[in-house]
Design a protein around this nucleic acid. Structure first.
Lengths: 210, 210
DNA sequence: CCGTATCCTGAAAATAGTTTCAGTTCTGGA
DNA sequence: TCCAGAACTGAAACTATTTTCAGGATACGG
């Protein structure tokens, strides 16, 4: 079916973006990556802008979905084993762990995680110059931040959750930049988040069950 | 002298980058902005890449210089008046104030401050795909972070200065993204930094003299 | 003044990338 | 099996951008 192909093309876009940035986004590259002819891109998406828009919408949706899903399930990343956050079978631990997992899910050595973060990073950078993209980014960011605030409300009742959620999510974005530019490893970034989280969530605590 | 012209061209580059991003960096635009012919760009800088490199080096240097200078002097921005950080005549207050000023100097409604942050933001985004730029960015970032750590050592002797410096600088970068995409005003960003700083520097404290 | 070295111009050539389109293949229903 | 329409191809036309280059202006030492 043709939808498979559209899907495949959009995924190819993400890979191309993750590899060369929005700057290196060439229709020829996308076509090659997707294994289709260049004409098909216009056939399905109208023009370059349409294709790019579809791809970025997809990136945005992925980011939003990840926020909703928390750090759990498939591509989830857990902060360094041995830290305060232990491995768990299904996604059903306390809010503090889920919060840490959510924040740490941005980082990981899995190429797909990196590709996703890279694409999202590019989208964010592009949003500076494009109001339409800015509102899409803002929406996804707000969803994520809201989820963080919710978990924070449960895990750290003595903190101002709004301020803390803003600080934590902005911190993750900053660390993400460091990670993607090779200034930090994924593990270091995750460890940093855990350190930042500690004073909020209660020092060395044992936060089990809700 | 020809150096004036080179200078003028590089400044034009920065303006073009700040306005349309690295993606919108066209030699024609630069030439128009600088008020010179397009051929002159090649004459002075070889080719597009040479021009871009010179421009980004300049951005990088500006960032590094700002880090060294602290938030003081010319383009300095102070977090919202009425906050913990009071106005001061010359740049000679305690380390806590200087730290806040340094971190807040990234934000401001002055078009030049915004242009600088925007250009730096673009450079950072480009560094994800370009190892050479990545090392330049890493160097400037490390300088800045080191300065933050130094001030932190004076202002907050009871905190791990390395961890805190990383967290604060990454936070500023994350907030910078929010600001540039319109998710936050400069004042809100600065206020957030002050909030994040408070628990480190001593609650409601009176941090006078070393 | 003259010569010449440097700075500078802008149109033309080259290059890179996108869009169109005439035509081919595939799919599913009659 | 045949047809119609959707999916798809790829080369040619087009557009955008960079690079080159022949030469014009300007500065300056002799």
């Amino acid at each position: 079916m043709a939808n498979d192909t559209r899907e495949r093309i959009i995924e190819a876009c993400e890979r191309v973006i993750a590899q060369g940035g929005l700057r290196g986004f060439r229709m020829g590259d996308v076509a090659r990556e997707a294994g289709v002819s260049i004409g098909l891109l216009s056939y399905h998406f109208g023009d370059r802008d349409g294709l790019l828009e579809a791809a970025l919408d997809h990136v945005n949706e992925s980011a939003a979905r990840r926020a909703r899903a928390g750090g759990g399930s498939a591509a989830g990343n857990r902060p360094g084993t041995g830290s305060a956050v232990a491995a768990e079978p299904a996604g059903l631990t306390g809010p503090a762990e889920r919060l840490a997992a959510l924040l740490c899910s941005e980082f990981g050595d899995d190429p797909q995680v990196r590709a996703g973060s890279t694409a999202w990073n590019e989208l964010r950078a592009a949003a500076v110059f494009d109001p339409d993209r800015a509102v899409a980014v803002a929406r996804a960011t707000a969803d994520w931040q809201r989820e963080v605030r919710r978990l924070l409300g449960e895990a750290a009742p003595h903190t101002d959750p709004d301020a803390a959620a803003l600080i934590l999510t902005a911190l993750v974005e900053g660390l993400s930049g460091r990670w993607l530019t090779g200034q930090l490893t994924a593990a270091e970034a995750q460890r940093t988040i855990v350190v930042a989280l500690r004073p909020l969530v209660g020092a060395g605590g044992r936060p089990r069950r809700s």
